[in-house]
Each structure stands twice: as structure tokens, then as C-alpha cells.
Design a protein around this nucleic acid. Structure first.
Lengths: 121, 121
DNA sequence: CTGGATCCCGAATGATACTG
DNA sequence: CAGTATCATTCGGGATCCAG
């Protein structure tokens, strides 16, 4: 899941950065604002803490996400989208979300578009 | 590489549709207009005809790409982006391309942004 | 003790090479 | 070219470690 040395196209690079089963979902959840690891874990259906951490780490490495650690007890860390790359990729994800909704409608699966399918605030 | 039965989010569905090493590149090449399989193969560096066909087939299945067969000899088939989904996903890819370029600049790799790295007309 | 982070391993999936 | 074999990568479970 790490980046290659060379890419023939910047697009390919970014596609690699957000590939993986959970990355788009994590970014999508983060559009709602900063949250802790445990909140992400409970908000994102089916993810394990381990998967979450792995993908989150990469997103931080690439610059889409940043984190802030609060001293004190209990230990608290917040993850959030970065101003530049984080918000930019969000625009691309919005388009993809839109395409997905249209697609489901067109294929008579509007019913799959219920509460639980769009991550709630 | 096939879609799942259920997705918790439309975004996840679309992400699965364009995942795979070559799909974004193929779509990106198609922004320049309709072309034949052999032209695609020679334009996209490193791809084999097999991979190209496989990924192209999926893109057609999902509705991003369509193809038109011209009767006569020699047989000629052209692939092109669909008006709706094809062009919409292109917008998302443009954003990703932009992020990629910025990222390379920021990391002092502008030099990697030469002719060959951006697929030519 | 609690929440965050990492390691090891087997299973599943994807990319590519090989072959007829 | 299609089918299959092979090789690399990713997913996910569970144990474990670290820090306040």
C-alpha cells in the first residue's frame, strides 16, 4: 500500500494515495469535522481499529489528514482534514458520491439510499 | 475486481468502480476523445492488451465508457467517455490530477512533470 | 486502566506471465 | 487472444505494546 517511486501521471499518484477499502470512507466521515479514533471507529460501519489506524496513518503521511494530540487524561487525539489537500480531495469525493447516488437511482436501488448508508453527522 | 452486493455509501461504490491500476489512466486518456484499442495500447505506457481490455470492459459495464463499432474492413472499434457518468468522473479526476501536480511541486519533484508524464494528445 | 499504535500471520484478491 | 499459474499486495483477526 505504499507509493511507487515513479508515476507516469500525477493522477495515478493520487489514485494510489486514496486507494484501499477504507480511505474514501474515512475522508468522507472527516468532512464533518475533527474526531477521535474511537469515534471514527464507531461511526464507520464494519471497520476495525487496526484497519482504521493503518489507513489513517497513510492519509496523514500523504497530507490529506492531520492529527492533534491533547495532553492530559484521558488520552485524546483528534484527526481532521488538512486545509489544502484534504479539502481538495473532498471535492473529488463529492463528485463521486453524486455519481454513486445517480447510479443507484438509475438502477432502481433508491431503497439502498437510506439513513444508514450515508454516514450521519 | 467486481462490485460488492451492498455498499454503505455511494462513494464507496464509485471508488470500487474506478479502482484498479489502470482505470484512471484509461479514463484520463479518453478525455482527449474517442480512440481505438490499439491507439490506447500504444498511448498508455506499460499496459498490456489484456489488462486494457479487462479494465475497459468494466468501465463500459459501469457506464463510464461506451464503444461504437464501425462496420467495414478493416474492423474498427472506438471507445469514448459517456456524456453523463464519463464526463462527471472526469471532473473528479481533474481534481486529483491537480492535487498530484501540486504535491510533486511541493516535494521538489517538478522535474518529474515532463512531457512523457502527462499523456500527450 | 484506557485509548492509541504496531506486529505477525493466514486468507483473499489483484496484476502479470505463461501457454496452448 | 482466453485460461490458468504465479507472484505481489491487501485485508483483517488477534495479540501486544506504549503512553498518560
Amino acid at each position: 500500500m505504499k507509493l511507487r517511486d515513479e508515476y507516469t501521471c500525477p493522477l495515478e499518484l493520487v489514485h494510489d494515495m486514496i486507494k484501499g477499502k477504507w480511505k474514501p470512507i474515512i475522508l468522507w466521515r472527516l468532512r464533518l469535522g475533527a474526531t477521535s479514533l474511537s469515534k471514527l471507529e464507531s461511526d464507520i460501519d464494519g471497520i476495525t481499529q487496526k484497519m482504521l489506524l493503518e489507513h489513517l496513518k497513510e492519509l496523514v503521511d500523504y497530507g490529506f489528514v492531520d492529527k492533534k494530540t491533547f495532553a492530559g487524561y484521558p488520552l485524546h487525539v483528534e484527526y481532521f482534514l488538512t486545509e489544502d489537500m484534504g479539502n481538495q480531495i473532498l471535492e473529488a469525493l463529492r463528485i463521486m458520491q453524486h455519481i454513486g447516488i445517480e447510479y443507484l437511482k438509475k438502477n432502481g436501488k433508491e431503497n439502498e439510499l437510506t439513513e444508514k448508508h450515508v454516514i450521519p453527522d
